[in-house]
C-alpha cells in the first residue's frame, strides 16, 4: 500500500535556514523557534518588525526572517515605542536579555510598559551577561559566581536580584506579563502558549505584553548543557517562580 508522506515537523518560515552563533546548550534557539512558529501561525511575518538588543542575541536579526532594527544597549523598548506609534498596524517585538532589559534599559522598559505600548517583549533571563563573557547581571542569583563576583553575588554589596515580571506586573496600566521556562518539553509547550498569547493580544491591539523566559547559559555558568538545565530547575525557578503575573482583563462596558 502506498503511503503518502506528510510533513509533520519543519522549520518555521519565519526562521531562516542558517546556522546560529549560539553556544551548545543555550536555549536562545528554542525561544527563537517559539517566536517564529507563533508569527507563522498567526500569519504576522510580513507585517512584523523585531528589535534586536545588545547582548548574545544582538545578531538575532540574522535568524528571524522579518524586518528588524538593531537598538542601542537597553533602548529596544524606546525604538519599539517610536516604531509602533508611527505604524500601529504593524507587529513589533523586542527580544532582550537581562543585562539589556533589567540593567541599562530599566528606564525604557518600565515606561514603555507603563504607557501600555502595544508591542511584545521576549525577555531572556539567564542570570548572567553572556556576550561580554559572564559578568554579574541584575538577575544573577545570591551566591552565584560570575567573573565580576568571583566569590559569589553578595547581596549586601549589590542588592538582591531583580524580579522583572513581578516588578512590571505592579504597574497599574493593563498588560499581560508571564514568566515561563524552556528547559523541558512540558515547559516549552507552556512557553509557546504564553508567547502566542502575547502576540495575539498585540495583534488585537489590547495591551503591552511581556514573556520572561528563564534560559540557560552553560558556557558562562561553567557547566554542561545537561547540568545547566538541572541548575536552572533547582535554583532559578525558586527565586523566579513561573506563572502569569498579570493577565489582560477586557475593560467593562465593551
Amino acid at each position: 500500500m502506498a503511503v503518502d508522506s506528510k510533513t509533520v515537523f519543519d522549520r518555521p518560515v519565519t526562521l531562516r535556514d542558517v546556522v546560529t552563533h549560539y553556544c551548545p546548550g543555550c536555549t536562545h534557539g528554542v525561544i527563537h523557534r517559539l517566536v517564529a512558529e507563533t508569527l507563522d501561525e498567526l500569519g504576522l511575518r510580513e507585517r512584523t518588525c523585531g528589535v534586536a538588543p545588545v547582548g548574545c542575541s544582538v545578531l538575532c536579526y540574522n535568524y528571524f526572517d522579518t524586518d528588524f532594527m538593531e537598538a542601542p544597549h537597553g533602548r529596544a523598548p524606546a525604538l519599539a515605542t517610536g516604531f509602533k506609534r508611527m505604524r500601529p498596524d504593524m507587529i513589533v517585538f523586542t527580544y532582550q536579555g537581562d543585562g539589556d532589559l533589567a540593567s541599562i534599559g530599566m528606564g525604557e522598559i518600565v515606561h514603555a510598559a507603563n504607557r501600555g505600548e502595544k508591542f511584545t517583549t521576549i525577555f531572556i533571563n539567564n542570570a548572567v551577561y553572556g556576550m561580554t563573557g559572564g559578568q554579574m547581571a541584575p538577575t544573577t542569583l545570591p551566591g552565584q559566581i560570575t567573573t565580576t563576583c568571583p566569590a559569589g553575588r553578595d547581596v549586601n554589596h549589590t542588592g538582591e536580584p531583580i524580579r522583572i515580571a513581578e516588578l512590571l506586573a505592579a504597574l497599574a496600566t493593563p498588560g499581560y506579563i508571564e514568566r515561563v521556562a524552556v528547559h523541558t518539553p512540558a515547559h516549552i509547550l507552556k512557553a509557546k502558549k504564553a508567547i502566542r498569547k502575547a502576540f495575539t493580544l498585540q495583534r488585537d491591539n489590547k495591551c503591552y505584553t511581556l514573556v520572561e523566559v528563564l534560559s540557560t547559559c552553560p558556557t558562562n555558568w561553567g557547566n554542561t548543557p545537561g547540568e545547566a538545565i538541572e541548575w536552572l530547575d533547582e535554583n532559578m525557578i525558586k527565586y523566579f517562580p513561573l506563572g502569569c503575573y498579570k493577565d489582560y482583563v477586557e475593560p467593562e462596558g465593551k
Binding site: 518588525c49 537598538a71 524606546a78 525604538l79 517610536g82 516604531f83 509602533k84 506609534r85 505604524r87 525604557e108
Partner: peptide
Amino acid sequence: LAVANMLFGAASTGK
C-alpha cells in the same frame, strides 16, 4: 535618552 531612541524607531518606519 528614550526620546532620541523613539525617534530612531519612528524614523525606521520611513515617516
